[in-house]
Design a protein around this nucleic acid. Sequence first.
DNA 1: TCAAGTTTTCAAAGATTACTGAAATTAAAG
DNA 2: CTTTAATTTCAGTAATCTTTGAAAACTTGA
Lengths: 177, 177
Amino acid sequence: MSKKNTDPEDKLAEARELFVSQWGALGGSWGVNRTMAQIHALLLVTAHPLSQDDVMAELEVSRGNASTNLRDLVAWGLIRPVAVKGDRKDYYEAEKDVWKIFRALARERKKREMEPAAQVLRQCLEKTEGLRSDEAKAFREQITALADFADLANSALDKLSGTTASHALPVVLKLLK
Amino acid sequence: MSKKNTDPEDKLAEARELFVSQWGALGGSWGVNRTMAQIHALLLVTAHPLSQDDVMAELEVSRGNASTNLRDLVAWGLIRPVAVKGDRKDYYEAEKDVWKIFRALARERKKREMEPAAQVLRQCLEKTEGLRSDEAKAFREQITALADFADLANSALDKLSGTTASHALPVVLKLLK
DNA sequence: TCAAGTTTTCAAAGATTACTGAAATTAAAG
DNA sequence: CTTTAATTTCAGTAATCTTTGAAAACTTGA
């Protein structure tokens, strides 16, 4: 028996597991499904690339689930396939630079959240173009305010994402108040 | 018969409906349920306060659904109850200032997305405190990078939300890039 | 205090979204 | 070309999230 009942290896393994499972649970509120978030978390804290089978084994998910979510993670730019010599399987490793991760998530969220919203607003303005009643004017003003804000938010995201240096954020912060 | 087959009133009504239904559909990707987003949209484009029954009638939702979502919208600060003299019912009106809407959403999202994430990261660091293996060091570095970024994002949100003037965003934009 | 009007709660039903597993497909090696 | 390994697809199932509706709990005025 050792002095403590958990040796260092166990503690690290525990912390990994905690991270992977909790990060997965968080995925929900981030608009990402649990498995996708867990795979990302797993690859984030694993030094070497993992194959689809490794992922299936670690997370106890089906082949189909692993396949779909690995594909999506690659499409989002959060992980990339890497070739391992002498092995026919595909291996994957995560992008570990937090700024790049942020940019990938921002890009995807913009696509899914901002663009459809902007389109709805545009349609509403088109449909009411030329209407002159007070009611119509109030409606158009409110919609226009939302559209202007959406444009603003969009270009903010674009500019942030366009910045290569992760130093941009701290700088912006200083300037704000 | 009029010259056109849709008169101006109809067009406005159509646009309203489009806005309410589509905004509701968008709610999903915003982490807000459909009814909640629709009620918000409805109140946003309605000049006068509406009662719970009005909302139920307009959106064809049940009493329970309307009740729950009106309560949540009030809690989020997106709508407020207003008293109407000589009427026992509660009436509600939306906050229409886009900057205030943004702040309310940011506050809520921070609470639901950032804080739990930060807590997970903290736990992971605690659990591995003092571990000296290379593996442990790499793990702690990755988690620390995420935690630092989360802190940064948090204070960015705080500062943005703390700003009263909606002029802050355009200013920030100019400074970026 | 009671009665009428109004809102809230919550178990059950319904709708949506995610996951499984096996068959179909693709890709590499012989 | 054929065999074998690996991956993708997708119909069916499971899990999750949303909504309903009716009973319980308030609230107000008489």
